[in-house]
Simulated scan of single mutants.
Amino acid sequence: MRFLSRPLFLATLTTLALAIVSISGMALFPRLAQAQPASPKQHSTLPITMLTIGLYSVNAEVASREADRQQGLMHRTSLGPNDGMLFVFDENAQHCFWMKNTKLALSIAFIDESGIITDIAEMKPETTENHCPRRAGRYALEMNQGWFAAKGIKPGAAIRGLP
């Protein structure tokens, strides 16, 4: 028969007690005991940057990786009044957007390499209609629908603070 040292015995006893509490908790709260799979609707924490458009400030989540750009604002149910998502692309091109699995009505500003808005489009939720800029660009900024119009922001406006 082998004896445990006092510290090892206490550690073993603690582990056993935690296991019993855990099992008891599962019996009392069976829903908590079920493994919850990661939902595709969960969003990773994206970096946030402060953008300035004229007199207005925007808190923009930055989607610069392919996976983040593909996810975009899908499955979100709300967006703060001055919050948005900035899509940053590696290449200067005509990047098109659609609203599949996006529950929010959004406005999108397409932005060229120098930070000038080239186009603004209104996008309806849950649609697969393509929204494309007329010119190549490196950025796109999605905001709540009507945000740009309400602020009087039109193509030709400059955005400061782009990464």
Rank of each mutant, 00 (worst) to 15 (best):
M1I: 13
M1V: 15
M1N: 14
M1D: 14
R2L: 15
L4G: 07
S5Q: 12
R6C: 00
P7E: 00
F9R: 15
F9N: 02
A11R: 13
L13V: 01
T14E: 10
A17Y: 04
A19R: 11
I23Q: 11
S24P: 06
S24G: 15
M26S: 15
M26N: 13
A27Y: 13
P30Q: 03
Q36M: 06
Q36S: 05
Q36N: 06
Q36E: 10
P37L: 01
K41N: 10
H43Q: 10
P47H: 11
T49I: 12
M50W: 08
S57M: 12
S57P: 02
S57V: 03
V58F: 10
A67T: 12
A67D: 15
D68V: 02
D68P: 02
R69E: 03
Q70N: 11
Q70F: 09
Q70R: 15
G72F: 07
L73W: 05
H75N: 13
R76H: 00
R76A: 00
T77D: 06
S78H: 12
S78K: 13
N82A: 13
G84D: 09
G84I: 08
M85K: 02
L86Y: 00
F87P: 05
V88G: 02
D90C: 04
E91V: 03
N92K: 01
H95I: 05
C96Q: 02
K100G: 10
T102E: 09
S107F: 01
I108Y: 08
E113T: 01
G115N: 03
G115W: 05
T118H: 01
I120C: 11
A121I: 09
A121L: 15
K124T: 15
E126G: 10
T127A: 02
E129K: 15
E129M: 11
H131D: 04
C132V: 10
R135T: 15
R135D: 15
A136M: 07
G137P: 08
Y139N: 07
A140G: 00
E142M: 10
M143F: 09
N144L: 12
Q145E: 12
Q145P: 04
W147V: 06
K151Y: 04
K154R: 15
K154D: 12
G156H: 12
G156S: 11
I159V: 15
I159Q: 01
L162G: 03
P163W: 09
P163T: 04
